[in-house]
Computed example of a mutant assay.
Amino acid sequence: MSRRSRVEAAAYRMRHHVLNMGQAQGQGYVGQALDAADILAAVYADQLRYRADDPEWEGRDRFLLSTGHYAIGHYAALAEAGIVPVAELETYGSDDSRLPMSGMSTYTPGMEISGGSLGHGLTIAVGTALGLRHQGSPARVFNFLSDGELDEGSTWEAAMGAHHHQLGNLTAIVDINALQADGKTDSVLRTEPVADKWAACGWFVQRIDGNDVAALLAAFDAAAAQAVPEGQPSVILCDTRIGRGVPLLEDREKAHFMRIEEHEWQICREQLTAGYEGDTK
């Protein structure tokens, strides 16, 4: 199986995991998890160095989920990676589960930071990347952000800090789905021209279709090619579509936090399966 096929198959299975977890609660940040599945699959199935049986392995690459509400998608990736048992996904959001609705590093294996107020992930990533460099570690740091987080001043302070310290071991990934809690991103606080802003902060910038696996792999390869302990940090801006892979959800008007009727879950699964043409194994 080719790299692309392997990642596409992982993303397909992850989307099914997301639907199964979402049904357990009847609602949640399902749309974001579906739109980010290709990105997370590319990271975990192709880029990240980790040991499934030792999530705290010192030599691991770090993946920091700044957007804690995307945890449902991250859990699907951790299950595909073998870090969290697939069967455990059934406990999502329940009392005493290791898989709370917002990511918590104290609960979940493989979850490096806790979610909460947005805008802190890149700051933590900068400190992590700097610390790893001081330790002489070859590990890389990947930080997943949302376009809504670009409203936060702390994100841009961190972006400038990463360039100042020449953190070539840091790659930021921004999910640009054009939607946040208060409405469309461009109506809340316009961030365009977003690529120019990252470039002005000194980053190596790529903007791609975040639901195109071939484009994702090419972008990650380009970032990896210049990932040195001291050099230019990288950012991959990923344009995505909320609910990707499930037409019923792609067209939802209120899609930031979805409430999905019980009879609709099976329709979602059928649409996801109908739109996938690859090998699921």
Rank of each mutant, 00 (worst) to 15 (best):
A76N: 06
A172N: 06
W265D: 01
Q232P: 03
D53V: 01
P55N: 10
M258S: 09
H164F: 14
L217F: 00
M160P: 03
A41S: 09
A158V: 09
A215T: 06
A125N: 11
T108S: 14
N143K: 07
D151A: 14
R4G: 07
E157Y: 06
G93W: 00
D182T: 14
R140G: 10
G202A: 13
E264F: 01
P229Y: 01
E90Y: 00
G103W: 00
A224P: 01
P109A: 12
G275C: 09
Y50P: 03
Q271N: 10
V86I: 10
A41T: 00
P85V: 04
A199W: 02
T273R: 12
W265K: 06
G148K: 02
G243N: 11
L64I: 07
I236T: 02
A77G: 13
V18K: 09
N20R: 14
E149R: 05
G231Q: 06
L65V: 04
V194S: 06
N20T: 07
G136C: 10
S137C: 11
G22S: 10
E90R: 13
Y29K: 04
Q135A: 15
G161N: 15
Q232T: 15
G28A: 11
Y29I: 03
D35L: 11
H263P: 01
Q232K: 15
I39D: 03
N143L: 13
A162Y: 02
H164I: 12
N177T: 07
A199S: 15
A181T: 14
M104N: 05
G82I: 02
R207E: 09
G231L: 12
Y92M: 02
V228Y: 04
A172W: 00
E253K: 14
A33E: 05
A219R: 01
G121W: 00
P138G: 06
T191W: 14
Q135W: 06
G73D: 11
G93L: 04
P55C: 09
Y12I: 07
I260P: 01
G59K: 10
P193Y: 04
H16Y: 04
P193F: 10
A139M: 03
